[in-house]
Design a protein around this nucleic acid. Structure first.
Length: 331
RNA sequence: GCGUCGGUGGCGGAGUGGUCAAUCGCAACAGACUGUAAAUCUGUCGCCCAUUGGGCUACGCAGGUUCGAAUCCUGCCCGACGCA
């Protein structure tokens, strides 16, 4: 019988962190963040690491250190894994995430706690919950540069044809118009000498998972998003971005990939004088809304998600799933 | 008051006699997603039926020229700028 895992998903600003903390308190759990940007140290305000509805900024205590000298992230008294684990100039990928998340979950279970995977990065959640067997080849900058140069010279369609020649099945698996996907598929095919499509498989799930989704009516979600962004600004997101940008910009002035995140992009525009602050804030709100809709598209297709509107329902479902009644969570 | 330029689909903005329901961008709506995923990419987008396709109403308003007008002419209304 596989160990049990709780997953809390939903669009940004829906209240995932707060709900995950409530569940962690009620059942003795620890949170594994499935958020592609909260992994980065220093990107705190813009990624809402400690949102106000979960205790607010300052509730986080990133200073604690475990017995092995590894920094441990606590927020609202609950341990969070996979937060603050890289500097913003580090590369990171689903494969890294899956490996580290599985390790964290295993560790939590071994200590008798309930693992709660919480986050809005759909692919990350899927990788863990469905135990995706990702192609083993990591990004190869050399190969990638070559392919990208080819695309620039001969056009994406020609490069897609090249991919299909090596991997016929890719013709209907890989999006021919998405350069990033074509590059990766071709990269894998070239590096391994084997078709990309033969190397992406779904494994047997390692956990029995209860997937909880937080649903809000669109206008409510939009309001939550706008409010959160206003709070980010009053919490001095601009100062955070300014400090990070001066520290992590490459020699050519370009920001690292981690800054390709909502809030950081727009504030950098502002700091560079390409937008006013009100324009940057408006762009943040709109871009976050677009992002939330993309997340909804992702999660909607997952029929296994139990959508809940409030914490009580989530706690009740979790209790039934774990066969364990909740501790008195309202202290 | 005179003059100039301009009024195009939710917005911005092309088009300047036919191939225009009208390039494109934004917004909106839907979707994809296996090592960049807060990333990247796709589709729809006047109205009504339909599978290709067809019908209707449209480019400030009213009239006119023309086989045919968003595109030309006249008048009117509105806006910006210039001169008074």
């Amino acid at each position: 019988m596989p160990p049990k895992l709780i997953a809390v998903v939903g669009p940004t600003a829906s209240g995932k962190t707060a709900l995950a903390i409530a569940i962690a308190r009620a059942f003795g759990g620890e949170i594994v963040s499935a958020d592609s940007r909260q992994i980065y140290r220093g990107m705190d305000i813009g990624t809402a690491k400690a949102p106000r509805d979960a205790g607010g900024p300052g509730a986080a205590n990133a200073g604690a250190v475990s017995g092995w000298g590894v920094p441990v992230y606590y927020s609202s008294g609950i341990r969070h894994h996979l937060v603050d684990i890289r500097d913003p100039d580090a590369d990171y990928s689903v494969a890294d995430f899956k490996r580290e998340a599985d390790a964290a979950i295993t560790d939590i279970i071994r200590r008798g706690e309930v693992p709660i995977l919480a986050g809005g990065t759909g692919l990350y959640v899927k990788a863990v919950v469905e135990n995706l067997d990702l192609p083993k080849i990591e990004a190869d900058p050399e190969i990638r540069r070559g392919i990208e140069a080819d695309i620039a010279a001969r056009g994406l369609a020609a490069i897609f044809d090249r991919l299909v020649a090596l991997d016929p099945e890719a013709a209907y698996i890989v999006d021919p118009k998405n350069p990033r996907r074509v590059v990766r598929a071709l990269e894998v095919a070239i590096a391994t000498g084997k078709p990309f499509t033969a190397q992406r498989r779904t494994g047997t799930p390692r956990y029995e998972t209860l997937k909880l989704g937080i649903g809000h009516p669109p206008d409510v979600l939009r309001e939550r998003i706008n409010r959160r962004i206003d709070e980010m600004i009053s919490d001095n997101l601009v100062g955070e971005v300014r400090a990070l940008a001066s520290r992590f910009r490459a020699a050519d002035g370009s920001p690292p990939a981690a800054f390709d995140a909502i809030g950081y992009r727009e504030i950098i525009e502002y700091l560079d004088g390409r937008a006013t602050l009100p324009e940057a804030v408006a762009a943040m709100k709109l871009n976050t809304w677009h992002f939330a809709k993309r997340q909804m598209t992702w999660f909607r297709k997952d029929a296994g998600i139990r959508w809940v509107a409030d914490a009580e329902t989530a706690i009740r479902l979790t209790a039934a799933f774990l066969g364990q009644s909740p501790a008195n969570a309202d202290e």
